[in-house]
Amino acid sequence: MTDPKANLVDWLRNAHAMEQQAEQMLKAQAGRIEHYPELRQRIEQHLEETRGQQALLERCFERLGESPSVMKDMMGKVAAFGQAIGGAANSDEVVKGAIASYVFESLEIASYTSLIAAAEAVGDTETANVARQILPQEEAMAQWLLEHIPSITVQFMQRDAAENTEAKK
């Protein structure tokens, strides 16, 4: 039988690794986007939010006398690197990147929703509050992407149809 607090700590570690992966993905995307300034600006904004989220999670670990998982963090970074390499090979990189980002934001939303429930179940109101603080940032990014995927797609198609115009990034 697993101690419920052990589950919470494990899920905190997962959230931290997820944010490490998000940071790497966002840095790679922002660094490659050239022709979609609104998307690049929003990604850079969320990158700063992501770094703040990592700091909030790290304070939870300190308060609980725990630490993030080096292995999980490394695996998240490796996964992000693989995604960046794979994405760069696509001729429609910007569109696929926006879609993949939306999917990743949905994962983060579900993860923080679960983390709130777990923290509440073990009486850790501080961790629940941290997750409640992070959740709206993830929801806002997902909503922004959902609203802008159509215009990103159309911009890509227009650029792709124009002669001597790069569209992919």
Rank of each mutant, 00 (worst) to 15 (best):
Asp3Cys: 02
Pro4Tyr: 08
Lys5Leu: 14
Ala6Lys: 13
Asn7Gln: 13
Leu8His: 00
Trp11Asn: 14
Leu12Ile: 00
Arg13Ile: 07
Asn14Cys: 08
Ala15Lys: 00
His16Lys: 06
Ala17Arg: 01
Ala17Val: 00
Glu19Asn: 03
Glu19Ala: 01
Gln20Leu: 08
Gln20Val: 08
Gln21Asn: 08
Ala22Lys: 02
Gln29Leu: 10
Ile33His: 04
Glu34Gln: 13
His35Ser: 08
His35Glu: 07
Tyr36Gly: 04
Glu38Tyr: 08
Glu38His: 08
Leu39Phe: 10
Arg42Tyr: 13
Arg42Gly: 11
Ile43Asp: 01
Gln45Thr: 15
Leu47Thr: 05
Glu49Val: 15
Glu49Ala: 15
Arg51Cys: 06
Gly52Glu: 05
Gly52Arg: 04
Gln53Pro: 11
Leu56Met: 14
Glu58Asn: 14
Phe61Ile: 02
Glu62Gly: 12
Glu62Lys: 10
Arg63Tyr: 03
Arg63Asp: 03
Ser67Cys: 12
Val70Phe: 10
Val70Gly: 14
Lys72Met: 12
Met74Glu: 11
Met74Cys: 08
Met75Val: 12
Gly76Trp: 00
Phe81Ser: 11
Gln83Asp: 12
Gln83Asn: 10
Ile85Thr: 10
Gly86Gln: 06
Ala88Asp: 12
Ala88Phe: 09
Ala88Lys: 12
Asp92Tyr: 13
Glu93Gln: 14
Glu93Asp: 11
Glu93Ile: 09
Val95Pro: 02
Val95Thr: 05
Lys96Leu: 14
Gly97Cys: 06
Gly97Asn: 06
Gly97Met: 04
Ala98Ser: 07
Ile99Met: 05
Ser101Ala: 05
Tyr102Val: 13
Glu105His: 02
Ser106Thr: 15
Glu108Ser: 06
Glu108Leu: 06
Ser111Glu: 07
Tyr112Asn: 03
Thr113Phe: 07
Ser114Asp: 11
Leu115Thr: 01
Ala121Asn: 04
Ala121Met: 05
Val122Ile: 06
Asp124Ala: 01
Asp124Gly: 01
Thr127Arg: 00
Ala128Val: 06
Asn129Gln: 10
Asn129Phe: 06
Val130Glu: 07
Ala131Pro: 05
Arg132Val: 09
Leu135Tyr: 00
Pro136Trp: 07
Pro136Phe: 09
Glu139Lys: 15
Ala140Phe: 05
Ala142Asn: 05
Trp144Gln: 03
Trp144His: 02
Trp144Ala: 02
Leu145Pro: 06
Leu145Arg: 01
Leu145Asp: 00
Leu146Asn: 14
Ile152Trp: 04
Ile152Ala: 04
Gln158Thr: 15
Arg159His: 05
Ala162Cys: 09
Ala162His: 09
Asn164Ser: 12
Asn164Tyr: 12
Ala167Asp: 09
Lys168Arg: 09
